[in-house]
Nucleic acid binder design. Structure first.
Lengths: 93, 93
DNA sequence: AGAGATTAGGGTAATTGGGGCT
DNA sequence: TATGTCCCAATTACCCTAATCT
């Protein structure tokens, strides 16, 4: 499965998540998402990683993506830090 | 694969339904509406799904029948471990 | 060499998440 | 049961200028 070594720009990732490019930069700075830096300091993100985050890496059930949405919320929501970053502290009070 | 689903913020969905963003969050927590979480924990909703809900295509079991008796009988909206009865079908034309 | 658009960086306001209560 | 409002903490969005990428 070549999920792509394709690199995405912060603007692309931001559009995918419907967030600000600056927010994507914060994710990289916080270690929540892997980033590759250009010699100039700009960041590039792997499309495979971004897509995994979008769908929810924990639940890959939906192969066919059609008009049929199936909101099956089984189990705990995907932990934000879930992946590589561990990032451990979130709001828990 | 792109069904043309833009992602909406909780505030956007709340404005569409004329409810509080908190209510939209509860819908997502209850599994009544699909939600995508950002690495930061915030939710994003698919515009296509929201539109389907707005049109009423998502709730075909609740028609205007039952004039006075609508005891909302033992029908747990989201039984634990059970598939969320709510939503799940979307009309396809 | 130029130009344009995007991105990084800091700072501040607005939104969101979660729990509890009316 | 379902919404709305309160709290506080975290995340996100928009402001700016300078540097980098195409």
């Amino acid at each position: 499965m070549d999920t792509g070594d394709r690199l995405l720009t912060p603007g692309e990732v931001a559009a995918l998540f419907r967030v600000d490019p600056k927010t994507v930069t914060r994710w990289a700075a916080a270690g929540r998402i892997g980033s590759i830096r250009t010699p100039g300091g700009h960041r590039r993100f792997r499309e495979s990683e971004v897509r995994a985050l979008l769908e929810g890496e924990g639940v890959l059930d939906e192969l066919e993506e059609g008009p049929e949405n199936r909101p099956r919320n089984a189990g705990p929501a995907n932990p934000p830090g879930g992946g590589p970053a561990g990032a451990g502290h979130m709001g828990l009070h």
